[in-house]
Design a protein around this nucleic acid. Structure first.
Lengths: 347, 347
DNA sequence: GTTATCCGTGCAAACGTTTGTATTTTTGCC
DNA sequence: GGCAAAAATACAAACGTTTGCACGGATAAC
């Protein structure tokens, strides 16, 4: 029916003023008298006016939409970061346009283009695991719209990066296993060209070194972040090696390991202790409950949002890396009965 | 640096033609010669042209952005529906603007406004649990942009509704429990003003009736979809009632029940059998693994996307309710050792 | 060679805002 | 009451497209 949407021109006509006055009134501009401002707002509400943000951003060159690209939204970590971002952005009048890269660099490239076409005011990104070169970001940087990287980041792109303290998480997990008596700790790593996995690995090595344990590369399984690969890895490892601990860079591979170990009648945590990473919702449901590193996803999101809002309209964006603290959550899968007291120190 | 974004006018000047020709050429319009079309596309690519969708939708009145409102994105079901929607929409050149209502009707209202302001071409919605009146949708209907409801729907709003076969899910779960020997089956329901919970409840009642079991309202716990309420409910019930089965409308309350029952040393499935709903990722991780009703979220998403694309630009949108089949997944939590064969029929 | 037809392109207005500048109205002051 | 200054509003162009219509030139028909 009412195909015609109310515009400021309609309001202007209705009131016998010009669109400019209406526009300024709605924007709260002091140049129009308080009386008129109030009248305009009343009439606008009365007529059911919905501002056209397309026209607005076209004219003003500004946009209240922020683009966000994540590998997948159905991952606990990412969906919580998104919630954190929205918690800050929405009340401030911004919208979030969310894209998934599905871990594919091609989709990531497409998403970038789509966001640029939508003239977003800023872009928030966590790279796909496939992404190794970053020239598709040149356009973003050339347009100088703020680009904030989080979690999966690279220093090949300027601007702020906000990451978990993955090194600390890896170090603490490993140290915790050592304190609980592990001597030969395997590490299920992710792709080591991705910062988060590299840093978890570095933390692992560092903890070993600090404890005087010689690093043994045959205990490291690369590209092992899925449940299946965790199962396979632990099975293969146990054939040739004697291990008494597993620090997995992902809760999923840790889960796979636990399942396989149980199947093999290896006692957890008695014979092998296991820790994971990300504190997925399932980690306290498995038996034994899985120790894991909690990432403060929501808080990370709020920081990202604040960062991008700060940088909108700024000429140059500072290069900085912000670390969000992580927390080791100790559960049954990594406890040796006799050291519970000492572990408390790990929190 | 290059603050100036390339426009079709730039391309036109460069080539010595007019913007209209460029516009038509890029749109693949037959009215411009193939030769020119090819040249335009080449030059556009060469100059790094990014179409301005704001200007485009402003002028054309069409928008390639679809808005979607869900209670929360960090729920397995919803994030998978979203993925399904995107899987169809993105290749077709549409973008998805996702909003969360956080189960609050006020946020839902705000999201609607925001989407309308963004002049989306269509809206996909699953209502918040709080939403009981629907007049905030009048504006959407008045603008006649397609509105597709899914999962949590109401027939107070016209247009297509796409839902799981919740009745069937409830019926099958209950029947399965009955076939496995349960005589007194409790039901943990959600808010009964929400269609999905109402229908699961109806399915439960229907199955009881068909089996000649008298419905007993004291075995129904209202508003019981969270883990904690599941724990409490089972504890309270067992004090006064003798039950041997629980059909929970949510995996979370089923989980709570399982945890509490184990704590109370009640044997599952020996003394009490439990089934849930939604087949959350954790349901096969708990011990005993939880029987649940799988909702085909991704496929539902693809259907929603097709539906909304079909209806864009249409005058009137047909009122229809589409049912997506569900599947009962039987796991340990509801099996009586001696009837495994008969259960197969439930699939 | 004239006229009709068609093809390719140009012209200009429009979408709904915002915003710099101009104009009118009000106010204060002598 | 006249005048300048200040306040309030109007005017008009612009943002980057799309699109109905007009136009010129080539081809075809007679």
């Amino acid at each position: 029916m009412a195909k015609h949407r109310i515009t400021i021109t309609d309001i202007a006509k209705e009131m016998g003023v010009t669109p400019s006055t209406v526009s300024r009134a709605l924007a709260g501009n002091e140049r129009v008298s308080l009386k008129t401002r109030e009248r305009v707002i009343a009439v606008a509400k009365d007529m059911g006016y919905q501002p056209n943000v397309l026209a607005s951003s076209l004219r003003s060159g500004r946009s209240d939409t922020i683009g966000m690209i994540v590998p997948r939204i159905n991952r606990h970590f990412f969906s919580n970061v998104i919630s954190g971002v929205e918690a800050i952005l929405n009340p401030a009048g911004f919208n979030l346009l969310i894209c998934q890269s599905h871990e594919r660099v091609e989709d990531e490239r497409k998403a970038i283009h789509s966001l640029l076409s939508n003239r977003v005011g800023g872009i928030i990104i966590s790279h796909s695991v496939e992404t190794k070169s970053f020239n598709h970001y040149n356009e973003v940087l050339a347009e100088d719209i703020p680009l904030v990287q989080f979690d999966r980041v690279t220093d090949e792109i300027g601007g702020p990066r906000i990451v978990n303290d993955n090194f600390l998480g890896g170090m603490r997990s490993t140290r915790h296993l050592i304190k609980n008596g592990c001597k030969r700790i395997a590490h299920f790593a992710g792709s080591l060209h991705v910062n988060v996995y590299k840093e978890r690995f570095d933390g692992y090595k560092y903890a070993l070194e600090k404890a005087g344990i010689v690093f043994d590369s045959s205990l490291v399984v690369d590209n092992c972040i899925l449940q299946d690969s965790g199962s396979q890895a632990v099975e293969i490892l146990l054939r040739s090696e004697k291990i008494d601990g597993v620090f997995a860079a992902s809760d999923f591979s840790a889960l796979g390991a636990i399942k396989k170990l149980k199947e093999m009648k290896v006692v957890i945590p008695g014979e092998v202790k296991v820790t994971g990473f990300a504190n997925e919702p399932f980690s306290d449901l498995v038996d034994p409950a899985l120790s894991s590193v909690e990432q403060n996803a929501f808080e990370m999101g709020t920081q990202i949002a604040r960062l991008i809002m700060e940088n909108i309209g700024k000429e140059s964006i500072p290069d900085e890396e912000i670390h969000v603290p992580v927390r080791l959550i100790v559960r049954e899968s990594s406890l040796s009965g006799n050291s519970e007291i000492r572990i408390k120190k790990d929190f």
